[in-house]
């Protein structure tokens, strides 16, 4: 399983580095979303700092939908997916490999968005440990849920509209727990970060487990 996961992760990352769709389309969208949020909330520093956690996580979630669609598209045409089925890859390994690739891409996005948060929203981070832990746990949960729901969303012609409808409601716990964690991590924030980091950890574990169990049957059907 882990050998196949490494193979699939390498494939997805190599395709992405070659095509640069994430680099030139998805990442700019994410940064642009954050920028527009900053414009929409006006110049008031207090308002920007207060709204920063929510807007960060909104930008991340909407961008995750694009990442999820891109991750699914990397599987190629129906003929390519069938060719891959004939290779005997462990479906759980394929799921893990795609999740790892998407996790790494989301971490890069989170770094960009955090930089945007510091520059545009004038946020001061009190606890980098909480912020980094929240980002990593959320990236894992977002990646695993995205790969799983990407397999559930069917063929390309309906995936573009169906996947957001399926995925965004599922990601609501990540939004809530992420915002609370960030509020605990920044100046003037509040809340018990441990509880919310726990929610992110449980979400990640659940969807990683579900993906390992269900990805194979979903692909076969």
């Amino acid at each position: 399983m882990f050998r196949d996961a490494a193979l699939v992760a390498g494939r997805d990352l190599r395709i992405e580095l070659r095509s640069r769709v994430v680099l030139w389309q998805v990442l700019p969208f994410s940064v642009l979303a954050l920028l527009l949020f900053a414009f929409a909330f006006g110049p008031s520093q207090a308002r920007l700092v207060q709204s920063a956690p929510g807007l960060f996580w909104l930008a991340l979630l909407f961008s995750t939908v694009l990442f999820a669609q891109r991750s699914r598209a990397l599987e190629g045409s129906p003929a390519t997916r069938e060719a891959a089925r004939l290779l005997g890859l462990d479906p759980a390994g394929v799921f893990l490999g795609k999740t790892v690739a998407l996790f790494l891409e989301l971490v890069v996005l989170e770094v960009l968005l955090v930089v945007g948060l510091l520059l545009l929203f004038h946020v001061v981070v009190v606890s980098w440990l909480v912020l980094i832990a929240a980002c990593l746990l959320a990236a894992l949960g977002l990646a695993s849920a995205s790969v799983l729901y990407g397999a559930l969303s069917g063929e390309a012609r309906i995936r573009s509209t169906l996947l957001p409808v399926l995925l965004l409601p599922i990601l609501a716990p990540v939004l809530i727990a992420g915002v609370r964690s960030f509020q605990a991590a920044i100046k003037d924030g509040a809340g018990l970060s441990g509880r919310w980091l726990g929610v992110l950890a449980v979400f990640s574990l659940v969807y990683t487990g579900l993906g390992i169990a269900l990805y194979g049957p979903l692909e076969e059907n």
């Binding site: 494939r11 190599r14 395709i15 070659r18 190629g76 045409s77 003929a79 390519t80 069938e82």
Partner: peptide
């Protein structure tokens, strides 16, 4: 009938 390969590779 289809190619069955990854086009970017």
């Amino acid at each position: 009938h289809g190619v069955g390969l990854y086009e970017e590779l």
